[in-house]
Amino acid sequence: MDVLINVFVGLHIIGIASLLGGFLTQMKAMGAGTARFTPAMLHGALTMLITGVALVGLNQADGQSVNNLKIGIKLAVLVVILGLVYVKRDEEKAEKALFGAVGGLTVANIFIAVLWT
């Protein structure tokens, strides 16, 4: 079971890398007002959602304790990110505030995962 959990952790990290990488590559464009939400950002957020749910289930099935408050907050933040990226994915330009919010929420989600023990 540990190998399977570690595989899903790796996939979860790939998802967050895709979401954050998509944001970081658009930082210069955000300054110019031409940033847009890329497909990589949407796919990264979806990957995080699917692997995160799988990780919670696998950890509970393995008898490990899961901090439901932490998971609930991370899920809520991810749903907001996913909603913003999904709704604005086809637009030529994303507003600076929305684009910055996605980046900020992504970083916040990373810090919640790492620092909340």
Rank of each mutant, 00 (worst) to 15 (best):
M1D: 11
M1S: 13
D2S: 08
D2P: 01
D2H: 12
D2T: 15
N6F: 12
F8C: 08
V9D: 05
G10R: 12
L11E: 05
H12G: 11
H12F: 03
I13W: 03
G15E: 12
S18Q: 08
L20K: 09
G21R: 12
T25V: 11
T25H: 05
Q26N: 10
Q26R: 13
M27S: 14
K28F: 13
K28I: 05
M30P: 10
M30W: 05
A32M: 15
G33D: 13
T34Y: 03
R36D: 06
F37W: 15
F37S: 06
L42P: 01
H43A: 11
G44V: 03
A45D: 03
L46H: 05
L46C: 05
T47G: 10
L49K: 12
I50R: 06
G52T: 07
L55C: 14
Q60Y: 14
V66T: 05
I71K: 09
I71S: 10
I71W: 03
I71N: 06
G72L: 03
A76K: 02
A76Y: 00
V79D: 01
V79W: 01
V85I: 11
K88P: 02
R89F: 04
K93F: 05
A94Y: 01
K96A: 07
F99E: 02
A101S: 15
V102K: 00
F111S: 13
F111M: 11
I112F: 14
V114L: 12
V114D: 13
L115G: 15
L115T: 10
W116G: 15
